[in-house]
Design a protein around this nucleic acid. Structure first.
Length: 150
DNA sequence: GCCAACGTTGGC
DNA sequence: GCCAACGTTGGC
């Protein structure tokens, strides 16, 4: 059974259109243990919502798919990367990433404000007060509910 | 730009 | 192991 996820990104740094152009990208730079742990249990073929944060209309803008299971995040090894972490090494990698591939972009963003109106989505981590997790699980029922809003 | 909420760090 | 200080996230 494929699992469902939600990936947050600031569109000014990486947008759904960037993913469409590149077809696929390493979801690197995640420096949160809980988010990392979710990536470690992802399987190829799992699907995810692509969420735009810190922008004019925060919300879900499309769908991506896990194209490669988790492997060590190379940006953690690069001193010139903004995601460099001296505590991570190729011998003992601390951070991991999956690859995600573009599936589709929605014709219009499904805004965060719209999601908040749907009672069936009340329990999504995304909608919890103070929640900042950049990679999070989505329940199958929530996935279906959101697709109906597109 | 503000600020609430949260995760991490590091002194003790 | 506690907890204050700090930095970051992200909506507004």
């Amino acid at each position: 059974m494929p699992k469902f996820w939600l990936f947050k990104s600031e569109p000014q740094s990486y947008s759904i259109d960037d993913l469409r152009r590149e077809r696929s990208t390493p979801w690197s730079g995640v420096r949160n243990y809980q988010a990392r742990n979710f990536m470690q249990i992802m399987s190829v073929g799992d699907e995810g919502f692509f969420y735009h944060s810190s922008c004019a209309v925060p919300g879900i803008v499309g769908i991506c798919r896990v194209a490669h299971a988790a492997y060590p995040d190379a940006t953690a090894f690069d001193p010139r990367s903004e995601y460099y972490d001296p505590k991570s090494s190729p011998e003992h990698p601390r951070w991991m990433n999956v690859d995600v591939a573009f599936v589709r972009a929605f014709p219009e963003v499904v805004p965060l404000t719209r999601l908040r109106e749907i009672a069936a989505l009340d329990e999504m981590p995304l909608l919890q007060r103070g929640q900042r997790l950049s990679v999070q699980p989505v329940r199958a029922a929530e996935w279906r509910t959101i697709l109906k809003l597109v």
